[in-house]
Nucleic acid binder design. Structure first.
Lengths: 80, 80
DNA sequence: TCATATTGTTGTATTTATACAACAAATATT
DNA sequence: AATATTTGTTGTATAAATACAACAATATGA
């Protein structure tokens, strides 16, 4: 299982699934499947999405659950 | 099409396909397919391989052809 | 050189990712 | 509230990734 932040990245940009799907050239329902975790993106699609969102691939996809914002902040504080 | 450096990374470590395959829990022939570019790794396998080789994912996989060592050196020199 | 291990090739089977359609449920817009 | 847009669900179809087997070709090592 691979975790992803597609939904967050997408809504941050104020895009609908259809718009994102068009941008990376997949069916709009494919975006839905990915966001719900029904299946993983292919490597190819993962690269396209990361590129589209202008983030490194492992900021959009991770083999381990992403930290919540609260956890990120706690980690930052601990690292001071 | 996604490019990869699995063959290089693997032979740098002096491993056979079988050994690498066992380490990332796939069939040894799957490694062969990937090395020959017959098909792409899944995102899951890509993460496992990158982790195994201790390199960032995009050092092992890229949507664009990797530079040769000569090109890398030329780029380094140009950046001086 | 002979034996063994590794790699390449071909072929079949299964699983997973993607496409597409129809329609219901939920949100947003006017 | 009525309408339109977006999202969720289910179902079918195809393509791509993976497993596995058998065997040929190459390379490695005794």
């Amino acid at each position: 299982m691979i975790y992803n932040r597609i939904k967050t990245l997408r809504s941050d940009k104020g895009l609908s699934r259809k718009e994102l799907a068009d941008a990376v050239e997949v069916n709009f329902q494919t975006i839905g499947y990915l966001e719900r975790g029904d299946y993983n993106a292919s490597l190819e699609l993962a690269f396209k999405l990361a590129e589209f969102f202008e983030v490194p691939l492992d900021m959009a996809f991770s083999p381990r659950p992403f930290k919540t914002i609260a956890e990120e902040l706690a980690a930052l504080k601990a690292a001071e």
